[in-house]
């Protein structure tokens, strides 16, 4: 265009009338440039602020993770100072198909199955009980949630004493005084460890379930009472559907907790009797600290990592689009 007509918003003398919805041209172009620069600065700032935690993660998480994956390709001799041998996939294949690994995997699955559903149901039960408007219910709420204040070690020691075949109260109740300890009985050891775990996690389960119950609107519960629903119908058709996000959350988090369980097994059974409580975490520990076989341990670690990762991904998905119902 050779001849430029005066822009519409200039009057006959070339002065800008500048209608309010259109800022003057120069201001506009500056405004267009500066947000981009500001964005760049913001991004740099963001990374700067993230740097400390990135460093911590790198040192304590990312490096060990990469190192484990790397190690799982090497045969590591049990004596310090000896060179590692690259073994490629052969060690991985050998470990993953070994009887010990498969046993540990199976024990781990059993352990999750024993602990997660039971913890869920008991936690829900206590939460429903504590949700009643009864005199002195606060006391019970405190009691029900009290196990969060104990550590796995404390819980294990308590139960170790209770199950002691000579002096244990439980042994006495179940008429097993003087007999083989439950913890040494291949049929019962895993169950016993599971009971301790459920007990120890009960406080947390109770709190999570209680929080879920709080979110069930009172008028829904009241409506169902007027609509003739008994306690069971109310639980089944009103409370549980509203609680489903909480239940999913509890299942996933509970599973991860059980996959990572170590302390109670170490204290109560050390993986025995006859490997019957030798969950993956304990087997890994055993490989590193008793067998001095870091290569095998690395393979199992990576396997456990992948299993836990699946649960974590499920959890992230759930948190992103929580299974909630609009009212």
């Amino acid at each position: 265009m050779s001849v430029t007509a005066p822009p519409e918003h200039l009057d006959a003398h070339g002065r800008a009338e500048s209608p309010p919805e259109r800022p003057p041209a120069r201001a506009r172009s500056r405004a267009a440039r500066s947000p981009r620069r500001r964005r760049t600065l913001e991004v740099l700032l963001a990374y700067g602020l993230l740097l400390p935690s990135l460093l911590v993660f790198a040192v304590f998480v990312f490096y060990p993770l990469v190192r484990q994956i790397y190690l799982s390709f090497f045969l590591t001799p049990p004596f310090p100072g000896e060179p590692k041998h690259y073994a490629g996939l052969s060690q991985i294949q050998q470990v993953l198909t070994s009887h010990d690994f498969l046993n540990s995997l199976w024990v781990t699955v059993l352990f999750v199955l024993y602990t997660v559903p039971a913890g869920l149901v008991l936690g829900l039960l206590l939460a429903v009980l504590a949700h009643q408007q009864l005199r002195g219910i606060r006391f019970f709420r405190t009691v029900f949630s009290s196990t969060v204040a104990t550590s796995v070690a404390v819980a294990s020691v308590i139960f170790f004493t209770l199950l002691n075949p000579q002096i244990g109260l439980f042994s006495y109740w179940f008429g097993r005084t003087g007999q083989l300890s439950v913890l040494d009985d291949p049929r019962l050891a895993l169950l016993a460890v599971s009971v301790v775990t459920v007990w120890q996690n009960l406080g947390l389960a109770f709190i999570v379930m209680s929080a879920g119950l709080q979110a069930v609107p009172d008028d829904l519960l009241e409506a169902s009472r007027v609509d003739g629903a008994g306690p069971w119908t109310r639980l089944r058709h009103v409370i549980l559907p509203m609680l489903s996000p909480t239940l999913f959350f509890a299942i996933v988090v509970g599973s991860i907790l059980s996959l990572e369980a170590f302390g109670q097994i170490d204290i109560l059974t050390s993986g025995g009797p006859l490997q019957h409580t030798n969950v993956l975490v304990y087997a890994i520990y055993d490989q590193v600290f008793n067998q001095n076989n870091q290569g095998r341990a690395a393979v199992m670690t990576v396997a456990l990592f992948l299993i836990t990762l699946v649960f974590t991904l499920i959890q992230i998905r759930l948190l992103e689009r929580r299974v909630t119902y609009e009212r």
């Binding site: 009241e222 003739g228 119902y325």
Partner: peptide
């Protein structure tokens, strides 16, 4: 309440969110 043979309409409506209208209505 369920033995009193009264029905209540709540300000919030208190519909069961996971049920369809049909299932809400037939719940009682």
């Amino acid at each position: 309440p369920k033995e009193r043979d009264v029905a209540m309409v709540f300000q919030s409506y208190a519909l069961y969110p996971q049920m369809t209208a049909r299932r809400n209505i037939e719940f009682p």
